[in-house]
Design a binder for these strands. Structure first.
Length: 468
RNA sequence: GUCCCCAUCGUCUAGUUGGUCCAGGACGUCGGCCUCUCACGCCGAUAACAGGGGUUCGAGUCCCCUUGGGGACGCCA
């Protein structure tokens, strides 16, 4: 049978990096084996599921390029099917109605905690013959009382849990709607999922689900539980650890392939290799090489990978992605150099696209003020004659291109008997507004003659006024 | 508390039938070179097998215990 994996998020929030990683692993495994990848929205919790979350999850998947072959399926559209199977279980006495009230269950749980035993349903309605008046019952699955459930996890190896640890879980709420542990099982069965790849936090659910699967007479899928991602404080990754929403990384100027590369390498490895193209990870990915231990999210390394891809990716493609950020910030790029050229001079000094955008803003719009420190250091009285000389010589330059502009600067340094830095730095502050920019000749070329001359004049006036 | 899972540098990890590992790579950090700024690049340094018992000629690699961490224990998923 050919492989089929699925990603089954519940639409109660954004797509976070942990979810994205399990999605990636499932996607990779399907791709690698020429199988199929299914997206299923687990929205049985009507209270908390929102359309907004669905949209955001889909956007995240699409931004990452994790396309699915089937779906999205919505569990809320399959209630009829779940109802059928619950009835069938009831008919076979593999499930039963439970009339316990919430208060009763709370009291039971409290009592068990006090006795320092694992809180669980004690099965008091297991053999009840008569309904109780005034209570809408839930349906509980009749879990086997003896023996143990053993399964072979593709990442962890053998896992065994005694049935005595498992209680009779609720498969239908009192309003008749099915619950998670039941719907996953039915869907995985109906959709012929062969490999269930999911977070570690589901490991305890697996034995229960296996019991239900058996009661339903279904074949068992393979299971692979990937470890959690922790924040820098060792606790489970959450909002307070910074950007955990996938889309937030887009906002912050990360490239999808950088995030993907970081995520695939977090908890999985192929020898010493650090950089993987999508093709490479698809080819090399193995569940057996997934680490068993939880790993800590390290944004420094993600940043490094992002920079790596900014340095090495196709400039045209990067320009397109950079454009997204300019648009978002409503910056008009018509009046400045082509974005591809900006990418080429800025890629080595920008770790994110946001950084790149900020550093290139001065090509497109006049800056409001000069960087204070830069003014102090570079706009000293002696800079005046340098800038005046530059203004004069730049006006006379015939071909406005890097090489000739470079000659102007070096020539001036020679004739004025100054170091390069004494010429280039004041010039840089004059045209860029701050002491940092790409090489001065490239910057001048991209900025163009008109803007360069204007800004030199502006700087000269500024220094003159400052010295009054 | 009970059950399940896990344990190599600060972080991600290599280590796949125990020996060639006084433990390798990457990020970070710290030095240095390059240099018109910031970077890039290059060179070098730093730092780990949680602890204790076994098994064995030999253990990071196998077994047990301890400790530590994570997860689960919902009419959430």
């Amino acid at each position: 049978m050919s492989v089929k994996t699925r990603f089954a998020p519940s639409p109660t929030g954004y797509l976070h990096v942990g979810g994205a990683r399990t999605a990636l692993y499932s996607w990779l495994y399907a791709k690698k084996t020429n199988g199929r990848f299914v997206l299923r929205i687990e929205d049985t919790d009507r209270e908390r599921s929102t359309q907004e979350s669905i949209d955001v999850i889909m956007q995240g998947m699409s931004w990452l390029g994790l396309d699915f072959d089937e779906g999205p399926f919505y569990q809320t559209q399959r209630f009829e099917r779940y109802g059928e199977l619950i009835q069938s279980l009831l008919d076979q006495d593999k499930a039963y109605y439970c009339y316990c009230s919430r208060d009763e269950l709370d009291a039971l749980r409290k009592q068990q905690m006090e006795q320092k035993i694992k809180p669980r349903y004690d099965g008091r309605c297991r053999h009840r013959q008569q309904p109780r008046e005034g209570i809408d019952p839930v349906v509980r699955f009749r879990n086997p009382e003896h023996g143990e459930v053993v399964f072979e996890d593709l990442i962890r190896g053998t896992i065994a849990v005694s049935n005595q640890e498992l209680d009779d879980l609720i498969i239908a709420r009192s309003d008749g709607t099915p619950t998670y542990n039941f719907t996953v099982v039915v869907d995985d069965m109906d959709m012929n999922i062969t490999h269930v790849i999911r977070g570690d936090d589901h490991i305890n659910n697996t034995p229960r689900q296996i019991n239900i699967l058996r009661a339903l007479g279904a074949e068992l899928p393979n299971y692979a539980h990937v470890p959690m991602i922790l924040g820098s404080d060792g606790a489970r990754l959450s909002k307070r650890h910074g950007a955990v929403s996938v889309l937030q990384y887009r906002e912050q100027g990360y490239l999808p392939k950088a995030l993907l590369n970081y995520l695939v390498r977090l908890g999985w490895s192929h020898g010493d290799q650090e950089v993987f193209s999508i093709e490479e990870m698809t080819e090399l990915f193995e569940l057996s090489n997934v680490n068993r231990a939880a790993s800590t999210f390290n944004s420094e390394k993600l940043l490094w990978l992002n920079h790596h891809y900014i340095k090495h990716d196709d400039p045209e493609q990067l320009a397109n992605q950079l454009f997204w950020h300019f648009q978002k910030n409503e910056v008009d790029i018509e009046s400045g150099p082509p974005l591809v050229d900006v990418v080429k001079v800025l890629r080595e000094r920008s770790k994110t696209l946001v950084e790149m955008m900020e550093m290139s803003l001065f090509f497109y719009a006049d800056f409001e003020s000069y960087d204070e420190k830069a003014v102090k250091k570079q706009f000293k009285p002696e800079a005046l004659e340098v800038l005046q000389a530059l203004l004069e010589q730049f006006s006379a330059v015939e071909a406005w291109e890097g090489e000739s502009l470079h000659h102007v600067v070096t020539g001036l340094a020679e004739s004025m008997q100054k170091k390069m830095g004494e010429i280039a730095q004041p010039l840089r502050v004059a045209i860029a507004g701050r002491a940092v920019s790409p090489p001065i000749d490239a910057t001048l070329e991209l900025l163009g003659r008109q803007k360069t001359l204007q800004r030199l004049e502006r700087a000269i006036k500024f220094i003159e006024q400052k010295n009054l």
